[in-house]
Nucleic acid binder design. Structure first.
Length: 423
RNA sequence: GGAGAGGUGACCGAGUGGCUUAAGGUGCACGCCUGGAACGCGUGUGUACGCGAGUACCGUGAGUUCGAAUCUCACCCUCUCCGCCA
């Protein structure tokens, strides 16, 4: 969420940045009109309330002096003023509600370094790491490898749950677990993150703070008869750890990592990625979340990205980093890097991590502040997060990159302790 | 599900209709003191909206009143005990 006053005072900038994302700016014109009405009501009703407050004190003084005759006309005056106050208050809350609806659906301003573009084809490659592996045979897609090995079962998953669910067994299930442990050990042991195991069901205020609500409810699974949603990413519960809190600057940056399942309805992606593990209603992810000062958030974005890249480097998987263009950028983010891993079975780079800086956009919605050293006024923190990594897609990458001609799958060296300790 | 207790500022905690513009304490900031620190003393210390005077905010929402943290109603949450249960 952007600050109301900022929108009012920088309306042309906000419109330009919203247009850069390829979005309609008509709502911003409505914002200006409604906001003007709001200010007019505010000035009238606050004047009346001021009068009421002073009159109430006068009445109290008269009553104390047992001078009921002098108090009477004031009481009558206030009875009349109150009916006008009630009128204005009602209009004010209606106006504020529609203003709130608009402000909550205005996306974050994209950073100046974000390239202008329409969709993912306009994303800009920043760098690549490693090389595409070469094969003496034609590499297969992971769904063929997995089904042939008997470790991926999509048919039974469909029977149990439906489409876009998977059943992992044996080596695949164990490797998924090994990957999660490996990633968590790396981020907690080497990168200084604190491990979190959060709730997987969260309420409306939490979903609103991080930006999933009110605009993207159709992407979420909701629990019937409860104010609870299945998390689409650990970003939601972990960022909400400090909702409505004031942190101390010396404690920043706060760095958390969490391994959780993620649940997404994938509404509107009907024909896409129907085979394999790439696009599921349920998948596992190790998430990285940071709370920082405004001064350091862009540096922290670079190190967050480096922390995520490290996972792929240690696994020996070729990837590239892209900067998302304005049209592909998420609603709450000011800048996002995607890491795309190479999948030889599909001869394509596929997103395996998304690392974003949200500036104070989520912090304002969730009221996450910090007190700068030596200052008395608190400020909003900056929040960041990124996948470190999507575990299911990492499993896919290993299956496709480490496949052998005989149909078996090699185990990356760093993963061997995790896999073998389970045997 | 049944019974009871409670939700007040960064934190603890007083406060049952108008000297509450929320006591007191802790923490924090600044100043004094000190060679430097601790201790001590003093001052200050929330959020939102508004150019500002100011207005609003004591779990949430509605109500009573000239006036509500304080009274009424509904709801939410936390804790304790009982029941059920992984």
């Amino acid at each position: 969420m952007l600050e109301l006053r900022f929108i009012r005072e920088n309306i042309e900038l906000v419109k330009a940045k919203t247009a850069k994302r390829g979005l309609d700016t008509a709502m911003l014109d409505r914002f200006m009109a409604i906001d003007a009405r709001r200010l007019a009501i505010l000035s009238e009703v606050e004047g009346l309330k001021n009068r009421r407050n002073t009159a109430s004190k006068e009445i109290a003084d008269f009553k104390k002096a047992a001078d009921h005759a002098s108090a009477e006309p004031l009481i009558l005056e206030m009875k009349e003023a109150n009916s006008r106050i009630k009128e204005l208050d009602e209009e004010l809350s209606a106006v504020q509600e529609s203003l709130q609806d608009i402000v909550m659906s205005v996306p974050n301003l994209c950073d100046d370094s974000v390239p202008e573009g329409r969709d993912d084809s306009d994303n800009i490659e920043v760098r690549t790491w490693g090389d595409k592996p070469s094969f003496s045979f034609t590499p297969k897609a992971h769904w063929d490898i997995g089904v042939e090995l008997g470790v991926l079962d999509f048919e039974r998953a469909a029977k149990i749950s439906g489409s876009r669910f998977a059943l992992l067994s044996g080596q695949a299930a164990r490797m998924e677990r090994a990957l999660a442990n490996f990633m968590l050990d790396l981020h907690t042991g080497e990168h200084g993150y604190t491990e979190i195991l959060p709730p997987y069901l969260v309420n409306t205020p939490s979903m609103t703070a991080t930006g999933q609500l009110p605009k993207f409810e159709e992407d979420l699974f909701k629990i019937k008869d409860w104010d609870l949603y299945l998390i689409p990413t650990a970003e939601v519960p972990v960022t909400n750890i400090h909702r409505d809190e004031t942190l101390e600057e010396r404690d920043l940056p706060l760095k958390y990592t969490a391994f959780t399942p993620c649940f997404r309805s994938e509404a509107g992606s009907y024909g896409r990625d129907t085979r394999g593990l790439i696009r599921q209603h349920q998948f596992n992810k190790v998430e990285l979340v940071k709370f920082t000062t405004p001064e350091s958030s862009f540096d922290e974005l670079e190190s967050l990205l480096a922390n995520a890249e490290k996972v792929l480097q240690l696994l020996g998987l070729h990837y590239r980093v892209v900067t998302l263009c304005s049209g592909d950028l998420g609603f709450s983010a000011t800048k996002t890097y995607d890491i795309e891993v190479w999948l030889p079975g599909q001869e394509a780079y596929r997103e395996i991590s998304s690392c974003s800086n949200f500036l104070d956009f989520q912090a304002r919605r969730g009221a996450v502040r910090y007190r700068p050293e030596g200052e008395k006024k608190s400020k909003l923190v900056h929040t960041l997060n990124g996948s470190g990594l999507a575990v299911g897609r990492t499993l896919v990458a290993i299956m496709e990159n480490y496949q052998q001609e005989d149909g078996s799958i090699g185990v990356p060296d760093v993963l061997k302790p995790y896999v073998e300790s389970r045997l």
